[in-house]
């Protein structure tokens, strides 16, 4: 047990210090994210539409969290390949489960801090009353949807083992598709009909739908108080199932590719 804790701590320790050493970049990226979020939400303010403003705000907050969870996990192996440390991590007596749990833990914590900063930063630019939102409900939905995104991140994380560059490219394309089909800033019904089936398989679609209810965006234009969590039972069920499928699937895919890489010599930095 102590061994497991130390190993998990090892990944948190590493990622904490990497974040610290690259802190100026973290500040720059966060600054950009805050400003970008504010400009999106100000579209709603300019339109004088409180409902639109809130919808955009939910989108910004949710995407700010989930995309970072996904991205950080997906890029963790890419970083290791660039640095050349991947072989050393893989020859350490650490189970892949602990390795990936450590990476996921840090990524999620990092994403949460980023999302909080984005929301706080946004409130500097936009005057909006969020006191009627169901905050505990939002936390539950975000936690459950993070698990599904961790699973997606794990599947993407292993791509750079095939090819560092192609892997990173595929990760970005995949993230872009998620952004498009999940209806982050709009209802998915506005998407072309041929794209709509894709929105059904994205966990972000359900997370967004639930968060909109919880923040108090009703069906019509009138503003209502945040809905109780029970109003999101369907979304929560789907998100939970997705998490239950995606995380084991992500671990399985990772293990398969790792085995293949050891047979074909793809763990090496070059080649």
């Amino acid at each position: 047990m102590e061994q497991v804790l130390r190993q998990t701590w090892g990944f948190l320790f590493r990622d904490y210090h990497l974040t610290r050493r690259y802190f100026s970049w973290v500040v720059v990226f966060t600054f950009y994210a805050v400003v970008n979020s504010a400009t999106v939400v100000l579209i709603g303010v300019a339109a004088g539409d409180r409902r639109l403003t809130l919808t955009l705000m939910v989108g910004v907050m949710l995407w700010g969290l989930l995309s970072v969870v996904f991205q950080e996990i997906a890029n963790s192996i890419t970083y290791e390949r660039w640095e050349g440390t991947l072989e050393y991590t893989f020859m350490a007596p650490v189970s892949r489960l602990i390795h990936l749990a450590g990476v996921s833990l840090f990524s999620t914590a990092y994403a949460v801090v980023r999302a909080v900063i984005i929301v706080l930063g946004m409130l500097l630019f936009v005057d909006i009353d969020l006191s009627r939102a169901n905050w505990p409900g939002l936390v539950v939905v975000l936690a459950v949807s993070s698990v599904a995104f961790i699973g997606l991140g794990l599947m993407a994380a292993v791509l750079p083992v095939f090819s560092p560059e192609r892997g990173a490219e595929a990760t970005n394309i995949f993230q872009g598709v998620l952004l498009l089909v999940s209806g982050v800033y709009y209802d998915v019904s506005v998407l072309p009909r041929w794209l709509q089936p894709l929105s059904v398989v994205s966990p972000a679609t359900y997370a967004l739908s639930a968060c909109r209810k919880l923040v108090g965006i009703g069906a019509g234009s009138e503003m209502v108080a945040g809905a109780p969590l029970s109003a999101c039972a369907y979304e929560l069920t789907v998100l939970t199932l997705m998490g239950l499928v995606f995380v084991p699937l992500g671990l399985y895919v990772f293990a398969l590719v790792e085995r293949w890489a050891k047979q074909t010599g793809k763990l090496k930095r070059t080649g």
Partner: peptide, 24 residues
């Protein structure tokens, strides 16, 4: 090739590795 996190110090690189092996 010295395969390390180049931005991390020797201390940080070494302790990371030590923790993976379950050392104090």
């Amino acid at each position: 090739d010295a395969a390390f996190y180049k931005k991390l110090s020797a201390r940080e690189n070494l302790l990371y590795s030590a923790l993976l092996y379950g050392l104090d």
